[in-house]
């Protein structure tokens, strides 16, 4: 098929121009040509290396994809059938017991004719693996922080202690969810502090920031359920290189048993 189809598509201008098939085979991306039944008309050398087979002409591309990704592929194929230009998708191509993650792009070969379509498959397995490692380490860290029986925070240095970030332990400690406390004008962490303690807290933190020292505080907060709860806090300032105070961060916890 390929031998008949390709020279017609790219007429050879002169002998110094590489033969199209040579060019396609030299690419590190798999290149495919599909008909309107999703059957493979042509695959370059990289394609055959990717799946470790040579007899793919005439068979459906779906047969070489991971079963879990077939729905994704069918979605893209339907878009092609409706003459839309689909966004690239990531899917898996099994090869023996191994998997290759590939980014698949598809476009009509001779627009505006919808068929055949040309496909490129770029092996992105190393990038996907690196993403998975990053995601796992982020997942692990956020779960660790979320499960701690205390509240980690980063706040602006104002009397409301406007929160940029609080960990999920906030709910147990204050009765308010992390979302309710972060960047909300109505509710601030400062307003939870008992009025008799709020002034002392502000003063001690400002003293510590002035000396660029960490601080340790003990005060009372109003829990959402109405209780008054004694908490302890350890924290320190965030400074720019020039010594400007950017914010404060630290941890708040209670020794009271619920």
């Amino acid at each position: 098929m390929s031998a008949r189809l390709l020279p017609r598509l790219w007429p050879r201008a002169d002998t110094r121009t590489p033969v199209p098939e040579q060019l396609l085979d030299s690419l590190d991306e798999a290149v495919l040509l599909l008909d309107s039944d999703a059957r493979i008309l042509y695959g370059n050398r990289r394609w055959h290396a990717l799946i470790d087979r040579h007899d793919t002409a005439g068979s459906q591309l779906g047969a070489y994809l991971h079963p879990a990704d077939l729905a994704l592929w069918r979605g893209l194929f339907e878009q092609l059938q409706q003459a839309q230009r689909p966004a690239p998708i990531w899917l898996r191509i099994p090869c023996g017991a191994e998997l290759h993650w590939c980014e698949l792009r598809a476009q009509p070969l001779q627009p505006p004719h919808p068929w055949p379509v040309s496909l490129t498959l770029c092996d992105i397995t190393p990038q996907v693996r690196a993403d998975q490692v990053r995601a796992a380490s982020h997942r692990s860290l956020s779960q660790l922080v979320g499960n701690l029986p205390l509240m980690l925070y980063r706040a602006r240095n104002n009397r409301n202690w406007s929160m940029e970030y609080v960990s999920d332990g906030c709910l147990e400690l204050t009765g308010y969810s992390a979302d309710a406390l972060v960047n909300q004008p109505r509710l601030s962490y400062g307003s939870l502090i008992h009025p008799d303690d709020a002034g002392g807290v502000w003063q001690q933190v400002q003293d510590a920031l002035h000396r660029q020292q960490p601080f340790e505080l003990h005060y009372r907060i109003h829990h959402a359920d109405g209780r008054l709860c004694a908490v302890s806090e350890k924290g320190s300032g965030l400074y720019s290189d020039t010594g400007a105070i950017l914010g404060v961060e630290g941890v708040v916890f209670t020794l009271e048993q619920r």
Partner: peptide, 9 residues
């Protein structure tokens, strides 16, 4: 913190 991969073919 491990990377888990489920490959159900």
């Amino acid at each position: 913190a491990l990377v888990f991969e489920l490959d159900d073919r």
